[in-house]
Nucleic acid binder design. Structure first.
Lengths: 340, 340
DNA sequence: AAAATTATTTTAAACGATTAACCTATGTAT
DNA sequence: ATACATAGGTTAATCGTTTAAAATAATTTT
């Protein structure tokens, strides 16, 4: 069916090695011979068999992207950036959704390795990634983490400037006169830890005392699609804080909680920003379509993905590189709308 | 480094063929021999080399998904469904974003084939897909189209019940007393044709005369991300119809135009649904977070993706199957909120 | 018990590239 | 003229499976 390098060699009257050398420019070939090969290639419409090459070279040209929650638009944009960046290097990106389940995440990693991907980009569900050490033991596969920092496993990571972003947001609220700001998030991981740290820094800088009761973290992982069906823990958290008259502003720690918080404010008919100001971490287009539109700390998931792609490419193409693990931070910024 | 089937055979004291037969259950093997092999496998922690298998079998276990616009949440959900369904069969899904560019789409298809995917799922940008005939000429790769119907190329397709969906929506508006309904969409393809057909049917059934000036189609392809930056053609279309006092209701033909239309209604401070009723094709969570929340014809992109996965799997695993090309329709339904 | 049938296992040839090791000219230094 | 490089090209092994075809063993039939 498809023509092989042998037939090209025969037609060109040279050996297969020479054809290979012409094709890959791996050895010097006389111009005359080269053009004989090239003519044969184009006459036979030869196309390399990537399966054979991959087999021989021991690579698959596929990078796996294991996503904690693919229904979350944040990660969808990470995927877009990742795909764009890796396609430059001839790599495919294979998606796997963990649906916020650690079990499924492990399953996904195993499956990807079983299909022999060349690298792994992981947005982990829980942060405990000890399991990877065992699984990766006899696979020489580089790993890059995005968005959430793992523990128990060492590798490159690409994260947002969580601390700085939250700091910026809280500072903005404080400048607008708020001194009692509720920090609401359904998660409780290192990323949230960093954002809370930013919260504290802004308070400290303003000479305000942090009221620990105003920081409400959750502990359960929920996917966005689930969160939309259930009311979401953030809804209840917001309700509690506001009804107790505890706060004058709410800060949602991520997009998941922003939905819960906003739903509460809306259903309770609370005037935003007059009665309660609202600001959220993680931007999206729908935030400009609500009434009022919602100010946000904008992350750059696309950039996170594309940087992760570069990192993994570097690791793959330079296996000798014993460079220490890097943590790269992608900037965040404040997008002002009408909710503060 | 990694242990091969040869070493397993040696340890078990059988031939490699027998090991292969045990592993793949391709031939009957005596229970005794079988267990000898199994013991050797587990002792050596043997894992098959998928690269070698793929090479030998001439398959890659990767399906390419070429998406017209990956920033569109509709397609993101198609991707989710596709991934879920194909992972059941041991296939990976590789994403490629065409960013609403035909050139890029062709590039993507070529690249995927060059990396030898086993199948192709395509959400095409323009509908003219003649180019595929040439490219696929000497690749035996099944193709399934989703969302948009191609012309110039024959294959399976998975589409929404566009006609019925639009019919349902327009009928609903008519029941609410509207007789002058603007149909707004930035695209003009067969999918829109079907939806407009539904519009006409509902009008016909109600004994109303269609005013052709109320049907505004566009002709340019824009990605959602672009659309969010530019104001979007739908914005202007809505403005025109409403300011001319031509209509009492607006129907957005897809999610892209819904954003433009809603932005106009909001910026122009038009009371929805009192002054103008609003209904859109394609549901999303943000439609329930606007004021008022927006009624929609809900599609099931996840289902579209998962059905596409099944179709392509069937075609791959049963190459002899000379079954004619199928068009599968995934149901749509009306989700009532407060904009009508 | 020999012949015929069936079940199990082995042999060895693919699959299509890459690449180390080996030739063979041709040119250069001694 | 001899030895020595160097450039250009070929040979043949190799990667780890699968799978026809052949060989052998076990079972059934006559």
């Amino acid at each position: 069916m498809s023509v092989s390098i042998k037939e090209v060699a025969k037609l060109a009257g040279v050996s297969v090695a020479t054809v290979s050398n012409v094709l890959n420019q791996t050895k010097n070939v006389r111009a005359e011979t080269k053009s004989k090969v090239e003519i044969a290639v184009s006459q036979l419409k030869y196309q390399i068999n990537p399966l054979a090459r991959n087999f021989r070279k021991g690579e698959s040209k596929v990078i796996g992207f294991v996503v904690s929650d693919l229904s979350n638009y944040f990660f969808q944009n990470v995927a877009i950036g990742l795909e764009r960046s890796l396609s430059n290097y001839g790599y495919l990106v294979a998606l796997m959704d963990s649906k916020e389940s650690k079990t499924l995440e492990i399953e996904n990693v195993k499956n990807l390795l079983a299909l022999s991907v060349d690298g792994l980009v992981i947005a982990t569900t829980g942060e405990d990634c000890c399991y990877l050490n065992l699984i990766l033991e006899n696979h020489d596969v580089p790993v890059v983490f995005v968005d959430r920092k793992p523990f128990g496993f060492k590798s490159d990571m690409v994260l947002s400037t969580n601390n700085e972003g939250a700091y910026l947001g809280i500072k903005h609220l404080i400048q607008k006169g708020h001194e009692k700001i509720g920090f609401i998030t359904s998660r409780n991981d290192s990323t949230m830890g960093e954002r809370i740290e930013g919260y504290r820094q802004a308070y400290l800088e303003a000479g305000l005392q942090v009221n620990e009761n105003h920081i409400l973290t959750g502990d359960n992982n929920v996917s966005i699609s689930q969160n939309l069906l259930l009311h979401g823990i953030a809804y209840t958290q917001a309700k509690r804080l506001v009804e107790a008259g505890e706060v004058t502003a709410l800060f949602a720690g991520n997009n998941l909680s922003s939905i819960g918080v906003y739903n509460y404010l809306r259903e309770a008919n609370i005037k935003v920003p007059e009665e309660i100001a609202f600001l959220t971490f993680d931007d999206s287009f729908w935030l400009s379509m609500t009434t009022p539109s919602i100010s946000a700390i904008k992350q750059d998931p696309d950039m996170i993905g594309s940087v992760a792609g570069q990192l993994i490419y570097e690791r793959i193409s330079d296996k000798t590189n014993e460079q220490p693990d890097r943590i790269l931070r992608i900037p965040t910024c404040l997008v002002l709308r009408s909710s503060v």
